[in-house]
Design a protein around this nucleic acid. Structure first.
Lengths: 204, 204
DNA sequence: CTCTTTTTGTTGCATCTGCAACATCATTTT
DNA sequence: AAAATGATGTTGCAGATGCAACAAAAAGAG
């Protein structure tokens, strides 16, 4: 594991790059150390354990996604774990220090705060959209909102979803088999045309 | 309506306070003017219209909540409206200008960016928690997660929820009558004790 | 290549949840 | 005070959804 000491960013600012192998714990949230992580490469997930000890996944993370207790509110003082799903490279920034201990005295401070703001705003946007999707009242509406967003994002009505259908079901927070059933119905009704991860939205 | 010109914040930074009366449109999102609003007092909601022209509510806003296209991702290029539910006082900050046009040259810039970062991080936390709730698979789990969070927040197992039950159902994104039915069942089963907006969590 | 694990696709069934439709109570407006 | 509006509480019902349990296909590991 290669770790930079972050001195190149100067002064109060500590920004450290670290690498993790698949399965490793990247960060435990709830220990109040005030760090924020940015996933530079690889994939990871955020999970917690419920009362019965069963692990469940809160979020999947990909390139450029960020995480940390300043960006995620733990529900009822439980611990969150960020676990590497593949080999990962991660940047850690001491959010707490940047925000509260050092007041724009150092040279690189302002630029880092600006970067953090852009990053945090992007996270708010992503979460806002996810909230939108999860707020839909039916599986069909969730699927359609997700697909129409992909359509707009990619600029084409035919595309391949960038994750497994299992992960998609998890993202939409619905039962996978129920989602598959709904996708089939939507195909039967001529709303979409899909096969595996390939989708096409038909009648606008 | 009293409007300050924001000159007191100096330089590139424009921060303007405005007042709105109940029913007024505070902000239209999607016009790309790059402003972010902070609700100083009063209540408002964010809404949009679906394909059939029916308005539906995306979010309720209270004191210190913030909004704007930099903090909310519109699903599939639709417009969002922020509407005052009561008389409101709102601060507008030119987020876009602060972030992209002026690079930490002015005196008050750094402090404003810092404030924006704190505000945005808080929003990310709030959304993260909402996502958590909406991701629960049953009405009961949604209610319990909400209640347990209130319990922790307020430090007591008996409390009054800070909104109408109708709004709570909306926040949890479930049918109100279905929520009422579930609350009654939870009372019958001795999990909680509640009457109207007063709740008490029984067996931990 | 072979073995193992994950993903996809499907179905039956029980039940959860949304919807419509009320009556009652509370709050606000006139 | 009376009227109007909104919130609460309840129920029947149909359809949507979660769950369990498979088989088959695909992907990954050794």
């Amino acid at each position: 594991m290669k770790v930079n000491n972050g001195i190149e960013h100067g002064g109060c600012v500590s920004r450290v790059t670290a690498n993790f192998i698949k399965g490793e714990t990247i960060l435990v949230m709830g220990d109040n150390n005030g760090r924020v992580g940015v996933l530079l490469s690889g994939e990871a997930h955020v999970s917690t354990t419920d009362v019965s000890g069963h692990e469940y996944i809160l979020e999947f993370l990909g390139k450029d996604d960020c995480f940390g207790e300043y960006l995620m509110m733990p529900a009822v003082s439980q611990l969150f774990y960020v676990i590497a799903d593949s080999d990962c490279s991660v940047d850690f920034i001491n959010f707490k220090n940047v925000l509260f201990n050092c007041r724009h005295n150092c040279e690189n401070h302002a630029e880092l705060v600006r970067e953090l703001l852009i990053m945090t705003a992007r996270r708010a946007q992503t979460l806002s959209f996810h909230t939108n999707i999860l707020g839909q009242h039916s599986i069909r509406e969730k699927i359609m909102l997700y697909l129409r967003n992909q359509e707009e994002l990619l600029g084409t009505s035919a595309f391949t979803v960038p994750m497994t259908l299992s992960r998609l079901a998890n993202y939409l927070s619905v039962d996978r088999s129920a989602m598959m059933r709904e996708i089939k119905r939507m195909n039967d009704e001529g709303i979409i045309k899909s096969s595996g991860k390939e989708f096409e939205i038909l009648n606008k």
